[in-house]
C-alpha cells in the first residue's frame, strides 16, 4: 500500500527533525500549564476536565496544527520533490492520505501524552471517564480539522510563512466563529442568519457536545465532511497547478 509508504516517510521525517518534539513539548506545557493557572483546576474543585483542560485545546490547535501541517506540501513544492512524487507510481490520493495521517499521528501522540491529567483527576475525585474519552475524541477531531485546513493552504503556496499565516488566520476564525462571547456580540450587530452561518463554520458547537460526553451523529458528519472537503480541495489544487 503506497499510502502506508508515504505515511511512514512523513512520520519519520517529523521525528528526524526537531519539529515533532518541539510541537509536542509546547503543547504539553501550554495545555497542562493553562489547566492549572487560568483553568483554575485546583480552585474550582470540580472533578471534570471540560472547562479547565479541554477548553484550551482549540486555542492551542489553531496555532500548533498549522505548524505541524504547513510543511506537508510547501516543502514538496519548494524542493521540487513533488516532481519525484508525481512521477512515482503513487496516486495523488495516496500521497494526500499518507501525509494527513502522519500529521494526525503527531498530534495524537501529543494529545495522548497529556494522560497524567486524567490520572490526577481520577486520583482527586471521581470524574465521568466516558465524558473524558469523548472529549479526547472531540479534541483530536478539532486538531484533524485544522490539519486538513492547513494542508489545503499548503497546496497553494511554496512559502512556509505565507502558509502558516493564512492557515493560522483561518483556524482562528473557526475558533472565534462559534465562541460564545463572539457570537453574543455578533448577534447584537447582525442578523440571526449571519450568526448562524458563522457558528456553523466554527468548531465550538461540535466540540462542545463531545466535550459533554454527547455522541451526536451530526458532529461526526460535520468533522468528517469538513476534513474530506479539505483533502479533496488539496487534490484539486495540486492537479490544477500541474495542468
Amino acid at each position: 500500500m503506497n499510502t502506508l509508504t508515504i505515511f511512514r516517510r512523513e512520520l519519520k521525517s517529523y521525528f528526524a527533525q526537531p519539529t515533532a518534539y518541539a510541537i509536542i513539548v509546547i503543547f504539553l506545557i501550554l495545555s497542562l500549564g493553562l489547566t492549572f493557572t487560568f483553568g483554575e483546576f485546583m480552585r474550582i474543585g470540580d472533578a471534570s476536565l471540560e472547562y479547565s483542560f479541554f477548553f484550551w485545546h482549540p486555542w492551542l490547535y489553531m496555532l500548533l496544527a498549522p505548524a505541524i501541517a504547513m510543511r506537508l506540501w510547501v516543502d514538496e513544492q519548494r524542493n521540487g520533490t513533488i516532481e519525484l512524487l508525481g512521477t512515482f507510481p503513487v496516486s495523488t490520493w495516496s500521497a494526500i492520505a499518507g501525509k494527513f495521517l502522519a500529521a494526525a499521528t503527531v498530534s495524537l501522540v501529543a494529545l495522548l501524552l497529556t494522560f497524567p491529567i486524567v490520572i490526577t483527576v481520577n486520583y482527586l475525585g471521581s470524574p465521568d471517564n466516558g465524558a473524558i474519552i469523548s472529549s479526547y475524541i472531540g479534541s483530536f477531531l478539532v486538531c484533524c480539522t485544522f490539519i486538513g485546513m492547513t494542508m489545503l493552504v499548503s497546496a497553494f503556496t511554496r512559502d512556509q510563512v505565507v502558509c502558516l499565516i493564512v492557515a493560522v488566520t483561518l483556524c482562528t476564525l473557526m475558533v472565534l466563529g462559534g465562541y460564545e462571547p463572539v457570537t453574543r456580540e455578533l448577534a447584537k450587530a447582525t442578523s440571526p442568519a449571519t450568526v448562524e452561518a458563522v457558528t456553523a463554520f466554527g468548531i465550538w458547537d461540535h466540540f462542545a457536545s463531545l466535550n459533554r460526553g454527547l455522541f451526536r451523529l451530526q458532529d461526526f458528519v460535520w468533522f468528517a465532511s469538513f476534513i474530506t472537503l479539505c483533502l479533496v480541495g488539496t487534490s484539486t489544487i495540486l492537479s490544477a497547478k500541474r495542468a
Binding site: R9, K12, S13, A16, Q17, N79, G80, T81, I82, E83, L84, T87, F88, P89, S91
Partner: peptide, 22 residues
C-alpha cells in the same frame, strides 16, 4: 493508465530534487 506506465519509467528531474531530511 498512469499507474502502470509510471512503474516502467525511471526519471531524473532537472534539479535532482531529494528529501533533505533523509
Amino acid at each position: 493508465n498512469p499507474y502502470e506506465a509510471k512503474t516502467k519509467i525511471g526519471y531524473l528531474p532537472e534539479s535532482a530534487p531529494l528529501y533533505n531530511d533523509m
